[in-house]
């Protein structure tokens, strides 16, 4: 056994998507293709071209209590990485090991039913996240307190504003202290007051020893929260290191980093 226990271990993880899948299958095309032998070679080539590697050879070890920030441009593979750690997807190659309870906050309110009331949705969503009835009942007051939604508790969600839905979702998602928290761009939820509140809640969880994987395009949030940063680009890890140096390098690489940094301040 190793001395140190890692909470998250990714070993040579690669994820391939087949771009052909969404083109669908057409009976006519199939007939045309299978009739012409000439195309056989061509098709093989196309097949290879249509493989898209969202992640390639990712190695990552995260210790308990670490807060890792993932940065990189759109389509760098950040969300795919989170989904693999959350167990939503299985990697094409490589192994994933995650210890402890995982709380994925990849998209808030996945599993909300807009026709049901806030109260009903708390139970439904809690069940989706794997909690039992007793547990949710005990925390129910806390959830609604945090979301500040007592006035609308029996109103169907379809009548909520999007900010209110997001507040409810955030409150449910953070109702436990999970050992591993996976966060995708959610601190920009609700109005300014709620943003502050949710950030404080995140800090509280981090200080409580929760291991966090955090994706954000807000470099400020990454700097505030994380103690290590990973820079991803085109499915590969470009650089790993302390938050400040990685953020600095990343901003510099994005054309005219100074402009960006000014904007954030």
């Amino acid at each position: 056994m190793k001395k140190e226990k890692y909470m998250i271990e990714l070993d040579n993880v690669s994820m391939m998507f087949n771009l052909d899948i969404d083109k669908g299958f057409s009976l006519k095309q199939w007939f045309v293709d299978s009739l012409s032998i000439k195309k056989l070679k061509e098709r093989k080539k196309i097949k290879k071209e249509n493989q898209f590697w969202a992640l390639k050879d990712i190695n990552l070890k995260v210790k308990k209590g670490e807060v890792i920030g993932l940065i990189g441009p759109n389509g760098a593979g950040k969300s795919t990485l989170l989904k693999i750690v959350a167990g939503v997807m299985k990697p094409t190659n490589g192994t994933v090991k995650v210890r402890g309870t995982v709380c994925p906050m990849i998209e808030l309110g996945a599993g909300f039913d807009m026709d049901l009331t806030a109260r009903e949705n708390v139970y439904l969503n809690g069940a989706v996240m794997g909690y039992n009835r007793d547990f949710i009942e005990k925390r129910f007051k806390e959830i609604i307190d945090f979301a500040e939604l007592w006035d609308f508790i029996d109103v169907p969600l379809k009548n909520f504003s999007s900010g209110m839905v997001a507040r409810l979702a955030f409150s449910i998602a953070t109702l436990v202290d999970p050992e591993v928290l996976i966060v995708d761009e959610i601190l920009s939820v609700g109005d300014i007051a709620f943003q502050e509140k949710s950030k404080a809640k995140m800090m509280e969880m981090i200080n409580g020893g929760t291991t966090v994987l955090f994706v954000s395009h807000s470099i400020d949030s990454i700097r505030d929260l994380c103690n290590r940063a990973i820079w991803l680009n085109k499915g590969r890890i470009v650089n790993v290191g302390s938050t400040n140096s990685i953020c600095h390098k990343y901003l510099n690489s994005v054309s005219g980093g100074i402009v960006n940094e000014k904007k954030h301040k």
């Binding site: 039913d113 049901l116 009903e120 989706v128 794997g130």
Partner: peptide, 20 residues
């Protein structure tokens, strides 16, 4: 056993939505 509560919630959702 582990997912019985989720099962329970999914079924009761079906009832609620069906007869709304």
């Amino acid at each position: 056993k582990k997912y019985s509560f989720l099962l329970n919630q999914l079924i009761s959702r079906d009832f609620k939505v069906k007869y709304k």
